[in-house]
Design a protein around this nucleic acid. Structure first.
Lengths: 336, 336
DNA sequence: GTCTAGCACTCTGTGTTCCCGAGTGCCAAG
DNA sequence: CTTGGCACTCGGGAACACAGAGTGCTAGAC
């Protein structure tokens, strides 16, 4: 049905349309890419491609434009991920290496990705549940309140102010801290609920009310903060592009954590793979494309990052940038 | 020069233009606001106002539009800050009261403000230097690295991974922690540099290299993080409005901490006052207006917050919302 | 059978013209 | 000082024509 030349024509159409943002006609196509055939032949192929739904024309007697289905075929079979230049790789490396803490890593990553791709970059904070407890700290604020701080091996710090049910002196807090750390140090966060289940029984009865409150806050922290935090950068890159769904919707989606989460969300069962969702394949924002991947070292996938842009984007370049940034940030996080 | 009726005309022009977004003509003006004079009279007044530079016409034979100078006069002399409704106040209160930590307070505040004003809201994190040290924590990661955590009375937590110049055992770290806390607990951050200046001398010689490294990181944290962190929300509200300077520039400014800082920056010497900067009065973004104020309890101003929008905004309502939110967030922070 | 050249056809986008109406400035009278 | 009257000015929309790009189709060439 689709011979090699027709595929070449589709590839050429996608490439031209992405770079010019104008419907591409048979004549220009036959000239610019040396297809060795005449415009008339190209027209026949185009008619076939349109028949199959890979391209469409905005109106009669205009050039052709790829459909979502056309981009899909292009991404799956007609393009190769384009690696970054050596200079770009060096720039990424040195920029990320300068980060001082987890917040900084994430901020730098998202900005870097936005700049490299000239799209909107989105980065999810490393997931709590897959990391392990490094330390639990209880800091007395006054005699009824303490600050509860949880530090994970990924460098993430979670904090909560806890209102205690009764006055608790410093010694008891120190004791609680010691017990908690002894119990939790090095444990995976996902196993925390089981570990703390029988903890109260191992404490003196007078410690139990306070311990119960603290533990409930701890569990709450794990559940609520699960993987909610997502940041984006590069919104200015939206200004030029025109979206099927309207700029406003895109900006709104970017500020809705839940929507962003779903957009980044993994599809395949191999989280480290590069996923590309094109147009209507996305939930919510049907007029945009999302290129995303998991990051984190090997077996231990921490979270996801990617970029969001118009369906008319340079997929090979974007995919290369996303993949490269994910690798580097994984390295950085593994090292710290 | 400008009698009462001319001022009333200016006020009416601003109000009409803000609500309709169309140049306002003499006839409509005379009708809608009961000025008790004829359109011809209004025209004379308008000519005078234009002469003085308070209004202008986009082209001959169109209605009038306020200039920056006109908005300025309106804000200074012709309008009153519009208080929020009781329902709105209750909503603010309950929404902010649900916050669990400082991050959450800031996030909720900025979203709330964006929603209330239907503009872009900007909130600066509470300044470190004006708060006091609540606790310093050193968490061993391995024998050459520790995580340094600084907790302030405003609930802010700063963290850094510190690479030590030599292997340091837990006991020594515990000792350092105790000394640091004894020295710093309750001190204002601005006085920290002096306080730690002679600290090394009070330590055993073998502790000094590690202590020096940690202290340098502490000082660095104070300096670098000074008041850099700023967040915004409500970018979607930009989609409708049209900016003199172009949407792209505004979005770019929002992602530049430095620019944002300058835009929020205080002008008067009373930081708690509501400041309004209109159009060209702003640095960088000459086509926008910024309504901002400091927040924090009374004498202890922590940082600034505000909104950014087109010069054509409803100043009385916006100012009311900014002021109210600043008050409530100050309360919340003072209580915690 | 596949490719090519030629040709008639169909659109969009652009430029032109025209006209209506909102709004103005000015002037003379109340 | 205010008001009604009046001529004037432009912007913006409607109607129209037109050039140009691109297409589909058909008949002939390889």
């Amino acid at each position: 049905m689709l011979d090699d030349r027709k595929l070449a024509v589709l590839r050429a159409i996608v490439e031209d349309y992405v770079s010019t943002n104008e419907p591409v006609g048979s004549k220009a196509l036959a000239e610019r890419h040396n297809l060795k055939v005449s415009p008339a032949t190209v027209r026949n192929d185009m008619a076939a491609l349109e028949e199959e739904g890979y391209i469409t024309q905005p109106h009669t007697s205009a050039g052709r434009v790829p459909t979502d289905k056309g981009y899909r075929l292009f991404v799956d079979r007609l393009s190769q991920v384009k690696p970054l230049s050596a200079a770009e790789r060096r720039a990424i490396e040195s920029f990320l290496a300068g980060a001082v803490d987890l917040d900084d890593v994430v901020t730098r990553t998202v900005r870097l990705l936005a700049q490299l791709t000239r799209q909107v970059a989105v980065v999810q904070y490393p997931t709590l549940t897959r990391s392990t407890v490094r330390h639990v700290e209880l800091v007395p604020l006054n005699d009824r309140r303490i600050m509860f701080v949880l530090i994970t091996n990924t460098g993430r710090v979670e904090q909560r102010v806890v209102e205690l049910p009764e006055v608790v002196d410093e010694a008891r807090i120190a004791h609680l801290r010691a017990v908690l750390n002894a119990c939790l140090d090095g444990c995976g966060l996902s196993s925390v609920p089981e570990l703390v289940a029988d903890l109260p029984e191992r404490l003196a009865p007078e410690d139990r009310p306070a311990a119960a409150t603290i533990l409930s806050v701890l569990l709450e922290t794990l559940v609520e903060r699960h993987d909610e935090k997502i940041v984006f950068a590069g919104a200015a890159n939206l200004a030029g592009a025109d979206f099927a769904t309207g700029l406003r919707d895109v900006l709104e989606a970017l500020e809705e954590q839940v929507v962003l989460m779903r957009l980044l969300g993994e599809t395949s069962d191999t989280p480290s793979a590069l996923t590309v969702r094109i147009g209507a394949e996305n939930p919510y924002l049907r007029g945009t494309s999302v290129v995303a991947t998991g990051y984190g070292s090997g077996d231990n996938q921490l979270a996801r990052l990617g970029v969001l842009g118009p369906t008319r984007m340079d997929y090979p370049v974007t995919m290369g940038a996303v993949r490269a940034v994910a690798r580097y940030v994984s390295q950085i996080l593994a090292a710290s």
